[in-house]
Design a protein around this nucleic acid. Structure first.
Length: 662
DNA sequence: CCGGACAGTTTTTTT
DNA sequence: AACTGTCCGG
């Protein structure tokens, strides 16, 4: 209840930071040193000092971090936090764009996601001529390059040189494509993810009035994970710094978003950019035992970069990390599942005490399969989002064209669903449809086109009338394309079909189709989030990037194998290898009590090498790992689940056979 | 020329 | 699961 109590819980360093009178502050905090706690306490302190909660804005980089903070703030401050905003940079900018669109020269606009961008780049770039292939970058590469240049606020030529020098010769052609992309975006009033920030940044740079307005609603900006912010995001903060107070928290050793232009210069040069800033350091780690930190510190020490970091455990000593080595990824995954299972049934640990960290969603597949096979309940975070799966996007494309017949990107997707319609036909027809945005006329043209069933066209007419009955609209849309989708996805149609129920559920919460569509462009809910809304007891399977800021008693870091850390594709680039090191560092520092690493490859040990220019190439971070830091165990064949744990599992299942006594 | 079927390959990370 | 390349039929 009391804010003072919250502040009393802080250690002296944290307290000093949270209660500073300095206008601007930078808090450098190692992993597990209470970064989030300090931010929450800072908010509490400000409120206690009389700052209205609605003038405090907490900014984070990912949605996960934002919701984490919201939860912590609500838990700690309760009613008093009412009005306090915590959101991602994107959500914050959207709030401004929606609230005062005129200040940005906008009227109507819609947000497009990456798939839409890819479609646009695909259309502009054109197909490859088989006989005479042009070597233009692929749509994906164009999209990434464009985004990278914008997030780092660099010229195309420089971004090109850094990201894909092999295309430097085609710079002019690439520039033309991007020019065309921007023209098309503008003509359709589309904003892509980067525009959301760029539009606001540009307006802030030009308009003192806007700066004043934003300053008046956010007197205090508390920025979390500062090391992940990129130059574009800094461009949002910079114009405000004279008028508001910045409280930025970060850790350069946890910067793992270089691919999105994150730049820890934002931390390293903070003092030069904000000369009157006070710097605080939090160095006591409250999360882990010293053994876990020793290994993490060791990993950073191996680097040529001076991270100047030595995490020190407040909790003292505990269990030494352990490395398990397997012949292949299947045995590795199976062992993890069984190990968790035994901890649950034999030691009585909760499922939710365990977290399995993986590099990529792809890498999670094996673990998922093993968990399913072993009956281990889990949820996967960082995976496919429901509203990003192909079949749901197909469905949404129909809703989109009905809500806005001028959305030719959605038309493209919708039209290509049908047999006999490819990119070219769809593109031609969609251009014709733009000329007649009346549903009646559109229906006529679709009928003449002859490749779409009459029934579907009829349903579309009905939908156009029903825009406010969101759930009915979605139900109709499903009817309209169900047969075709069943054919398109015949292999796993059964699995996909189930997702439409979830879409209906989500849709029912909205009053307008357009509102429903917009809400989830920026925040596509993940499937397991919907399925397991209640916090039931499950193991967490998570990508390292999603795991930042979280912690768990027992952490498994899977696939710590040569060629993975650093990933083979990063070899040879010093910056990329260092980012890989930080990714692994983030993974290691999630563990509270026990850290378990697993890897494959019994015999192949890549050694350190030197590249053509004589620079050191890191081939595997764990090469020189010693047994003082980490014990190792080699498994030559799969461990079988012990008879005892199998028995206990059966018993506990039997317990559930009774009637519901409630 | 277009689209579709099939086979083989290749998966980072997020807004 | 998504992307790529190739071949074939309209």
């Amino acid at each position: 209840m009391s804010l003072a109590a919250l502040i009393d819980e802080l250690n002296p360093q944290q307290k000093q930071a949270a209660t500073t009178d300095a206008k601007h502050s930078l808090v450098l905090a190692g992993a597990g040193c209470g970064k989030t706690k300090t931010i929450v306490a800072r908010a509490a302190y400000l409120i206690d000092q009389g700052v209205p909660a609605n003038q405090i804005q907490i900014l984070t980089f990912t949605r996960r971090a934002a919701s984490e903070i919201v939860a912590r703030v609500e838990l700690a401050l309760g009613e008093q936090a009412k009005g306090l905003r915590a959101s991602t940079f994107h959500t914050f900018c959207m709030y401004l764009l929606r609230r005062i669109p005129k200040a940005f020269g906008l009227e109507q606009f819609s947000i497009i996601d990456r798939d839409d961008q890819l479609m646009m780049f695909r259309l502009i770039r054109g197909r490859d001529d088989k006989k005479n292939p042009n070597y233009l970058p692929k749509p994906q590469e164009l999209c990434d390059l464009y985004s990278f240049a914008r997030n780092t606020r660099q010229k195309l030529s420089i971004a090109l040189e850094k990201q894909m020098p092999e295309y430097l010769a085609l710079k002019d052609q690439i520039a033309d494509i991007m020019k065309e992309y921007e023209a098309r975006k503008k003509a359709r009033s589309f904003l892509d993810y980067d525009d959301i920030l760029a539009v606001v940044a540009a307006a802030l740079a030009q308009s003192d009035g806007l700066v004043e307005y934003v300053s008046s609603i956010c007197r205090h900006m508390l920025v979390d994970e500062m090391q992940d912010t990129n130059p574009l995001q800094w461009a949002l903060l910079e114009p405000l710094k004279e008028h508001i107070s910045l409280f930025c928290v970060g850790d350069d050793a946890q910067s793992i978003y270089g691919f999105r232009g994150a730049d820890f210069e934002n931390i390293h040069h903070f003092k030069e950019r904000v000369p009157d800033a006070q710097i605080f350091k939090l160095e006591k780690n409250y999360r882990s035992t010293q053994e876990i930190l020793d290994l993490s510190n060791w990993l950073l020490d191996q680097s040529e970069i001076k991270y100047d970091k030595r995490l020190d455990a407040h909790r003292g000593e505990g269990i030494k990390p352990k490395m398990h080595i397997f012949p292949n990824e299947f045995d590795e995954a199976k062992w993890i599942a069984i190990d968790i299972k035994e901890r649950h049934y034999l030691n009585g640990n909760k499922w939710s005490d365990h977290m399995v960290l993986v590099r990529s969603s792809f890498a999670a597949r094996h673990i998922e399969a093993a968990c399913i096979a072993a009956n281990v309940p889990y949820r996967f975070i960082g995976g496919m989002k429901l509203l990003e799966t192909a079949h749901v996007k197909d469905l949404l494309s129909l809703l989109r064209v009905v809500a806005n017949p001028l959305d030719d990107i959605a038309w493209m997707r919708f039209l290509t669903l049908w047999n006999g319609v490819g990119d070219v036909g769809a593109s031609k027809l969609s251009q014709q449809l733009l000329a007649e945005p009346e549903m009646e006329k559109i229906a006529d043209k679709l009928e003449k086109f002859g490749k779409i069933p009459l029934e579907t066209i009829l349903i579309m007419k009905q939908m156009a009338v029903l825009k406010t009955e969101v759930q009915a609209c979605v139900t109709l849309a499903i009817q309209a394309i169900e047969n075709q989708l069943a054919e398109n996805y015949k292999k796993d149609w059964n699995r996909r079909q189930g997702d439409f129920e979830l879409v209906k559920q989500l849709a029912s919460k909205h009053a307008q189709v357009s509102e429903f569509l917009e809400e989830y462009v920026l925040d596509p809910v993940s499937i397991s989030e919907i399925e397991r809304q209640s916090d039931i007891d499950v193991v967490t399977l998570i990508t390292i990037h999603s795991a930042k800021g979280t912690e768990q008693k027992v952490c498994y870091v899977a696939n710590v194998t040569p060629g993975q850390y650093p990933h083979a594709r990063a070899q040879g680039s010093f910056d990329d290898v260092e980012e890989e090191r930080r990714v692994l560092y983030v993974a290691l520092t999630r563990a509270q009590d026990e850290l378990i690493l697993t890897k494959q490859n019994l015999n192949h040990w890549a050694r350190e090498t030197v590249d053509e220019q004589g620079r050191k190439v890191e081939s595997y971070f764990m090469n020189d790992l010693t047994r003082n830091l980490c014990t190792m165990e080699t498994h030559y064949k799969t461990r079988q689940q012990t008879v005892k744990s199998a028995l206990i599992e059966r018993q506990s299942i039997n317990l559930d056979f009774g009637i519901d006594l409630d």
